[in-house]
């Protein structure tokens, strides 16, 4: 990109999209392993850290990256597995809606750019 400045809003939206994609992958893996003995469910942390970075005056939201963490607090079944199928399915739907929301915002953003470039024609 020559002379173009990276739009931080767009970068954050793309990060949000990739974080929700990663979360979708992690949830799918939790569901696939719901009957694997000793399996520990994983989650993706991103939005909370991003929010903190956006609120703090010295925070840099562009430095926040999605992180996969093991959930060791959820109760385990007798086989040592702590995946709850219902909660996981719910998280999957919620995550999909989040993804669609971010995609809609990004699309609106791009449409505005398009309008500016074509002068509304």
């Amino acid at each position: 990109m020559i002379g173009a400045k990276v739009d931080p809003h767009q970068v954050i939206l793309l990060r949000l999209l990739s974080a929700t994609t990663e979360r979708g992958r992690v949830i799918a893996n939790n569901i696939a392993n719901q009957n694997t003995p000793g399996f520990t469910r994983r989650t993706v942390q991103f939005e909370q850290q991003l929010e903190q970075a956006l609120q703090r005056p010295d925070g840099d939201p562009l430095k926040v990256l999605p992180k996969v963490v093991e959930d060791t607090t959820s109760p385990r079944r007798h086989d040592g597995n702590n995946v709850n199928a219902e909660l996981e399915a719910n998280a999957g739907s919620e995550n999909r809606l989040l993804f669609e929301t971010y995609a809609a915002i990004l699309q609106g953003h791009l449409q505005m750019l398009d309008t500016a470039i074509t002068n509304g024609r």
Binding site: T20, T21, G24, I27, A28, I31, A32, Q34, A85, E88, A89, G92, S93, N95, R96, F99, E100
Partner: peptide
Amino acid sequence: EANLSAQENFLRM
């Protein structure tokens, strides 16, 4: 079925 709906979620995304 849970795996199927996870797959469905991904496809829609």
